[in-house]
Computed example of a mutant assay.
Amino acid sequence: MADLQDVGAFVAVARNGGFREAARKTGNSPSQLSEAVRRLEAGLGVRLLHRTTRSVAATDAGQRLLEQLTPALDAVTTAMDVVNGFRDRPAGRLRLNVPTSASKLVLPRILPPFHKAYPDITLEVIVDDSFVDLLRTGCDAGIRYGERMEQDMVAMPIGPREQRFALAAAPAYLQEHGTPKKPEDLLHHICLRGRFNSGTMPPWEFEHKGKKVVIEPSGPLIVNLGAAADLKVDVAVGGAGLVYLFEDWLQPYFDRGELVPVLERWWPAFQGPMLYYPGRRYLPAPLRAFVDFIQTMRW
């Protein structure tokens, strides 16, 4: 019978793609994890991980073992967490996978009162704008918009129920280049674009009185959406072009007069973000506390 600690070490390394990241997540040293995996491999007589100087990946045998172990380990975690429910206050770690927009516009309002209410819960936030599999990344829950949400998940609103995309420019830009009167005018303006990690460059969409207009503008700057969005805003503040982004993201710049709303009646509205997580009979206590807390908030 393999030592469960060695099994846990293998799972941590396989899930995190390396010994250093697994060590950071588990609190062990890379050498301790490496030795544990070696013991497990020696006991089973099978190589479980391919190791190179740059990466670690599961072998076919390791992948099959990981697939078989995951449900069992989840069941053990759930069983142990049931006991956590008998504590006066929930404790433990909660891992959230969220897009940059949620880390900037949603979580700052939630986390201070949540930590005050549940000081024994450690919240780990992974900011990732790509589409991810929650279970494979070891996260308990995520925040996404409806069209990018995984199937077969429980979902609930978190944050504003409705948001808008906004178009803006610095006063200096509008003074020099004029103010667009309709979306089609943007084809003759300098526009600051964004691209998803997948390589997709989304168009700029507008809507007014049932009429929808989709524009593919051009400009001298393209940034990675999410991580580099603030760069796009800063360049717009400097008077170099028009920026299209979440209204809430741009609102502080409107308040300070650094940016001016453009084509405001054409700004499209869309459903706000959702918290989603696997449907389970027993939720881990930290996640249950977070879900219950979100349901009490008003936006």
Rank of each mutant, 00 (worst) to 15 (best):
V106C: 04
A227R: 14
P119W: 12
A57V: 15
E162M: 01
V127E: 13
R64I: 00
P278W: 09
D74F: 11
M149F: 05
K104R: 15
M201A: 11
L225T: 12
V223M: 11
A168Y: 05
Q32H: 13
D248Y: 05
P273V: 04
R24N: 02
R15H: 00
K25E: 08
H177E: 10
P180G: 03
P157I: 00
P268S: 09
I121Q: 09
L283T: 01
A117T: 15
A36H: 10
G238P: 05
L174W: 04
E247Q: 13
V11E: 03
L242C: 06
D248V: 04
F293S: 05
T59G: 04
A72T: 11
G27Y: 01
K104S: 08
L174Y: 11
D248K: 10
A229L: 08
H177A: 06
G62Q: 07
A229N: 12
E67S: 05
Q151A: 13
M1S: 13
R20D: 12
G210V: 06
S103G: 15
A168D: 10
L94I: 04
V125T: 14
R161N: 06
A2V: 03
G239E: 00
R89T: 14
I190F: 01
M153P: 00
W267F: 12
Y276W: 05
A169P: 00
G241D: 02
Q5T: 12
T70K: 03
P278R: 04
A168N: 06
D60K: 07
M156T: 06
Y244P: 03
V46N: 00
L259W: 05
Q68D: 14
R93L: 13
I143F: 03
H189A: 09
V127C: 03
G159S: 07
Q271V: 13
D248C: 00
L174G: 04
V56M: 02
Q32L: 08
N224Y: 05
P71I: 02
I294Y: 05
G239H: 09
R193G: 02
I294H: 02
G239L: 09
K181M: 04
S198R: 02
T59Y: 02
M1E: 08
D292S: 11
K181Y: 01
D152G: 01
R280G: 01
T200L: 13
M297F: 10
P183F: 09
A12V: 00
K182V: 15
D133K: 04
